[in-house]
């Protein structure tokens, strides 16, 4: 009984610690990204002179990330991270449209690095989500909920996502099998 209490108590304390660490990891990865993007920009600048669109988008993302990191707000950081992931497809389109870009090592490297940094942030967020779910479930399930109540542990938000809205609804159009015309 005492052993059980100790191990449950330790679970909650270490879970909290790990979640905190995981949140900091998001910040860490965003910082890495903020440092990485200018470097990538300068390495492809000469090459992509005529594709100002890509460079502008990258610059925008970089600015937002820098702001988010400075604000120290987890949610903002995470939003900025998804921003990069969302511009990746449009960069890809530009690259696909220009065969001479597609074959070049510089551009391949750019795409690789961008995907990698986007993935890193996605996985850093994944860890926060997984750890928080684990913590919140143990907080409420029997019998560990006794320990949680005794310690007055509160539910942790994890990654804040609105629980209502478009992302949880399937519209009429989305239920249809997409047809692709070439």
């Amino acid at each position: 009984m005492v052993l059980w209490f100790i191990s449950t108590y330790n679970f909650f304390v270490s879970a909290k610690g790990r979640i905190k660490g995981a949140v900091q990891e998001i910040g860490n990865q965003l910082k890495r990204q903020a440092d990485l993007i200018p470097n990538l920009e300068s390495s492809v600048k000469g090459y992509l002179k005529h594709e100002k669109g890509i460079l502008d988008k990258l610059a925008d993302v970089r600015r937002e990330i820098a702001q988010a990191v400075a604000s120290d707000n987890v949610q903002k950081m995470s939003d900025a991270g998804s921003k990069l992931a969302s511009i990746l497809p449009s960069i890809k389109v530009v690259v696909e449209d220009n065969p001479e870009l597609k074959g070049s090592d510089v551009v391949t490297k750019l795409m690789d690095e961008l995907r990698d940094t986007a993935d890193k942030i996605m996985y850093a967020r994944r860890l926060v989500i997984d750890l928080t779910v684990d913590y919140n479930v143990r907080r409420q399930t029997f019998p560990s909920n006794f320990v949680a109540n005794m310690l007055k542990l509160e539910e942790l938000p994890g990654l804040i996502t609105p629980e209502k809205g478009e992302h949880l609804e399937v519209s009429e159009a989305e239920t249809k099998t997409p047809s692709i015309k070439l």
Binding site: A22, K120, M122, Y123
Partner: peptide
Amino acid sequence: DFTFYTVVENLCIGTG
């Protein structure tokens, strides 16, 4: 081995 190296690195971030 960029892809190999970074993919494992990322998966480790995701799993801790």
